[in-house]
Design a protein around this nucleic acid. Sequence first.
DNA 1: ACCAACTATTACACAAGTGTTACAGTACCG
DNA 2: CGGTACTGTAACACTTGTGTAATAGTTGGT
Lengths: 241, 241
Amino acid sequence: MSRVLVVEDERHLAEGLRFNLEAEGYQVQVVETGESALDLLGNGSHAFDLLLLDIMLPGIDGFSVMSELRKAGQFVPTLMLTARGHPEDVLKGFAAGADDYLTKPFELAILIARLRSLLRRYEWMRAANGSVAANAGTGDRYTFGEKSVNFDLLELRVRGEAFPLTLMEANVLRHLISNEGKPSSRKMMLEQVWGLHEDTDTRAIDNFIVRLRRYIEDDPTRPRHLLTVRGVGYRFVADPR
Amino acid sequence: MSRVLVVEDERHLAEGLRFNLEAEGYQVQVVETGESALDLLGNGSHAFDLLLLDIMLPGIDGFSVMSELRKAGQFVPTLMLTARGHPEDVLKGFAAGADDYLTKPFELAILIARLRSLLRRYEWMRAANGSVAANAGTGDRYTFGEKSVNFDLLELRVRGEAFPLTLMEANVLRHLISNEGKPSSRKMMLEQVWGLHEDTDTRAIDNFIVRLRRYIEDDPTRPRHLLTVRGVGYRFVADPR
DNA sequence: ACCAACTATTACACAAGTGTTACAGTACCG
DNA sequence: CGGTACTGTAACACTTGTGTAATAGTTGGT
């Protein structure tokens, strides 16, 4: 399941995109400003597979976001989106580092096709390059203490011993890890991991935590990495002391 | 210097493209038919870095050329070019495996920007992952444990005993082997092995896995090499422990 | 046109993964 | 010290995805 970050300040459009992309099976997160986008994509994180970036944004505009990202070594495939269809703007977008550029109004089907094509090309290249040896270097992995998670292989290693993770387990863990130190509320997790936006009372998350603790924690009753934040949710700490 | 193959039968346009692309520093070759294009790009050759493909061609059209190429394991980045701008045509182009799609008349600067963007993405991926592995061609044999496959002879040997493989069995196995360790989604396999890009619900892959397991696995109900990754697809592991 | 070989589709049993419920346990409040 | 609100956890129900056989369709050769 590919993760798409939508940067769009028009609520209407943003929610429309979210709805349709989720219907296509993508995991979607929406932010409204360039600043938040830079925040989420900082330090070469692999949290998203694709970026959908509007040009006209409050604060720093899409062009600048784009250049900043590429300057910072963030090469996430990006589709730019804008009302302005002047050729100069399109050229500016590509010059800034965009992979594709679409002008509003656009057909939704076209957007989806282009987005798919980008992800497909990305996958192909990864597949062509990433076999065996290359896997070791660039996979989607995270290491803490004597543990490491490989999100591509859905595998968690603790002192050499490997535990297979399910997709959901991996998603939950990834979410917590990518917010390391910061508590995540259940609501936030339901939105970002499950894609649910209604308030639902569920203990599903707690159950995932229980299972993840069994893998990760030496003493699951006294967790050191996956901590409960009472009244809020959970938070991941890589390096307890 | 990037090598571009232009497939275009209108001499005027073709020569214009050649002139301008060469001025941009690309090495350009022009052919006028889909047949010649398929010829030049056959058997996973790496002779070109980019393909500029017109739809309306004498003989087989651009869509078919595209599908043929992808089916044959030729994943050269491709920009499709056409007079027809109907959304269905664009979608058809992407479905056939195109990376980008431009409708005539187009601004030359835009074409160049898009073409550059495609090549740039390719460069980025190469830089990130190291050298590009030969397309699909993992050599013609592969050995693991007490088993070995000869993809030329379509033959699988397990402890001396030889099993003939069909072409498809071999292709599926090759794909999994060349992505050793990494799970391949059904979608990815349909794209890379079958050359299909639409979402099709099929159990064909599962059936191939069943058959391959019967050859390879000592106990097909408890596979050690061809592993299921639930919710994702399958993955090959050469050396289970 | 027929047959043989191969591949794709269908159908259904079964297994794995996930969400819900229920209740016990624990922190926090006065 | 209760009481309240929240979390931990097991058991179960339900959903979804996979294994596999049977069957239908396709292709290529004679």
